[in-house]
């Protein structure tokens, strides 16, 4: 079986600046992968290239063995969902209305929303703990609630893959953990492929099956949390001396010297 995403010799240039070059990666179905790296390392760009938000300058991305380019916009959106790093203002929409927009790839501009669509929207709202806010305007919510509303929209989209660009950056610790737990649970239940850009290495090692680190547009580390959570590997990723403790099996704590 081909990998879900197969990235081959991918390069992205913006103007004269090479953001990514020579990326070769395969992401398997049902795997939760974290993209790590310092600011400007190219992790968000890689995610955007996977989401077809920006075109590749060289190389290609295969979706289940086929070139992702050929797929129609809505067909692609039924398979791959993407959450941008800074979701824009929502112009007075309520949470429920925003989440319902996630059904667009399935129903198109004219198709009627069925009972199933409404049920999926409600489910997504319940999954993200947003029930009390369902009829509030998204603009009036706090940063964390707003971010969850966007994640709920992505869930309603019912894709087989989630590409999340720093989905927990605006959340408090409780909601950070809950969001990642939700992502992990959904990935297990529905065999979702998840690729998520994270800043927190410890949380990433806790909730992800695999960590991929970028530096200056290239992959510098790739492996299971046990392989990456090592002081030398972390030091090579972030260029600061770091140490790692394993508190319990599968629970690492990294710190800066």
């Amino acid at each position: 079986m081909p990998a879900f995403f197969d990235v081959r010799n991918l390069a992205v240039r913006i103007g004269d600046t090479a953001i990514l070059h020579g990326i070769d990666l395969a992401f398997n179905e049902g795997q939760v992968t974290a993209l790590l790296g310092h600011n400007g390392s190219g992790k968000s760009t890689l995610l955007k290239a996977l989401a077809r938000q920006i075109p590749a300058s060289a190389g290609e991305v295969l979706l289940e063995g086929q070139s992702a380019k050929g797929l129609g916009a809505r067909a692609f959106a039924r398979v791959v969902g993407y959450l941008p790093q800074h979701p824009p203002g929502t112009d007075g929409l309520t949470v429920r209305e925003l989440v319902a927009l996630g059904r667009y790839p399935w129903r198109g501009p004219l198709g009627r929303y069925s009972e199933e669509d409404h049920a999926l929207v409600d489910q997504a709202i319940t999954d993200t703990d947003l029930k009390p806010f369902a009829h509030r305007s998204v603009d009036t919510l706090s940063g964390g609630e707003r971010q969850r509303a966007w994640i709920a929209m992505l869930l309603a989209q019912q894709t087989r893959c989630l590409l999340l660009d720093e989905p927990i950056s605006a959340l408090d610790v409780k909601h950070q953990v809950e969001t990642l737990r939700l992502v992990q649970r959904l990935a297990n239940q529905r065999e979702l492929t998840v690729i998520v850009v994270l800043h927190d290495v410890d949380l990433a090692s806790r909730f992800c099956d695999r960590l991929v680190a970028l530096k200056a547009g290239q992959v510098v580390a790739d492996g299971a949390p046990a392989q990456i959570m090592d002081s030398q590997v972390l030091e090579s990723i972030y260029s600061v001396p770091m140490g790692v403790m394993e508190r319990a099996p599968g629970q690492w704590i990294s710190y800066v010297h």
């Binding site: 955007k48 989401a51 077809r52 938000q53 129609g72 916009a73 809505r74 067909a75 692609f76 959106a77 039924r78 791959v80 969902g81 993407y82 959450l83 941008p84 979701p87 824009p88 203002g89 929502t90 112009d91 929409l93 209305e97 927009l101 996630g102 667009y104 790839p105 198109g108 501009p109 004219l110 966007w150 989209q157």
Partner: peptide, 23 residues
């Protein structure tokens, strides 16, 4: 009126609209 669902998606911004499958 037929285009109203497109019009709902446009204000969400380019990347969100594109990721929902809007060409």
């Amino acid at each position: 009126l037929l285009a109203s669902r497109w019009l709902d998606l446009m204000p969400l911004g380019d990347s969100a609209a594109r990721s929902l499958g809007l060409p």
